[in-house]
Amino acid sequence: MRRLATLIAAPLLAVLLTAAEPAAAPDRPLSDPAQEARAQALFEDVRCVVCQHEAIADSPAGVAGDMRRLIREQIASGATDQAVRDDLVRRFGDYVLFTPPVRSGTWLLWFGPFALVGLAGAALILRARRRPVEVAPLSPDEEHQLAEVLRNEKLRRYPDATSPHDGR
C-alpha cells in the first residue's frame, strides 16, 4: 500500500516541482518614443532579482516584467531616471543595479578586488625579496655520522625494499 502511494505521489510531486513561474504579462511600450527610449536604457542597467545575471530587458521572469511595468509607470508619471533608480534601490537594494553607487556600504564591492590584487602582489614581492637561507657546512663529526648512515643504507635488511631516494 505504501509503495502504491509513493508511485502515485512521485509523478505528482515531480510535476509540481517543475511547474514554472507564470509568464510575464506582455510589455506595453510607452506611447512617447523618447520616454520608451529612456525606459529601455534603464532596463539595461537594472538587474533581474530572479535571474541575477540578466538585465530585466532580457529576462523572461515575471518579476522582471513587473519591474519593467513599474519603470514605465514612473517614467510616464514624470520621474527622472535617477528617481527611478533610487526607488528601485529602496525596494530591492544596491544589488539591483549593475553599477551600484560608490558609498561606504559598497566600498568592498568596488575596491575589494583591487585590494586583493594589491595584497597578492605585495606577498609575491616580499617572497621574491627573501634571501635564501645559507646552510652551514657540516662539522667533521656530522660528516662521519652521515657517512655511517649512507653505508648502512646500502646494507638493507630487506633487499627487495626500495628507498624513496633510489630514483625509481
Score class of each variant (00 low, 15 high):
116 L>M: 11
126 L>G: 13
51 C>E: 08
44 E>C: 02
56 I>F: 01
123 A>M: 14
111 F>W: 14
35 Q>I: 05
114 F>I: 13
112 G>W: 08
154 K>N: 12
43 F>P: 00
103 R>G: 14
37 A>W: 03
142 E>M: 09
98 F>V: 08
60 P>F: 00
123 A>V: 05
120 A>V: 14
154 K>M: 13
112 G>H: 09
128 A>K: 01
29 P>Q: 03
125 I>R: 12
99 T>P: 08
4 L>Q: 12
158 Y>P: 03
39 A>F: 00
96 V>G: 03
10 A>I: 12
86 D>V: 06
64 A>W: 02
150 L>D: 15
87 D>F: 13
37 A>Y: 07
136 A>Y: 01
23 A>E: 15
41 A>F: 04
55 A>V: 02
41 A>M: 11
63 V>W: 10
18 T>I: 08
94 D>V: 03
60 P>V: 04
98 F>D: 13
80 T>M: 04
4 L>D: 06
158 Y>R: 13
151 R>Q: 12
20 A>N: 09
50 V>W: 02
29 P>M: 08
33 P>Y: 02
151 R>Y: 09
86 D>G: 05
24 A>M: 03
42 L>R: 02
105 G>E: 13
53 H>C: 11
23 A>S: 14
68 R>V: 00
140 P>L: 09
47 R>V: 11
96 V>M: 02
16 L>Y: 06
19 A>W: 12
158 Y>D: 15
144 H>S: 14
164 P>C: 09
98 F>Q: 05
141 D>I: 02
21 E>H: 03
153 E>S: 10
17 L>P: 03
59 S>R: 00
120 A>Q: 08
139 S>R: 09
76 A>M: 00
56 I>G: 00
105 G>H: 13
63 V>F: 03
68 R>I: 02
25 A>W: 07
56 I>M: 02
162 T>R: 15
155 L>P: 01
26 P>A: 11
54 E>G: 06
168 R>Q: 13
118 G>T: 04
26 P>Q: 04
95 Y>L: 12
39 A>C: 06
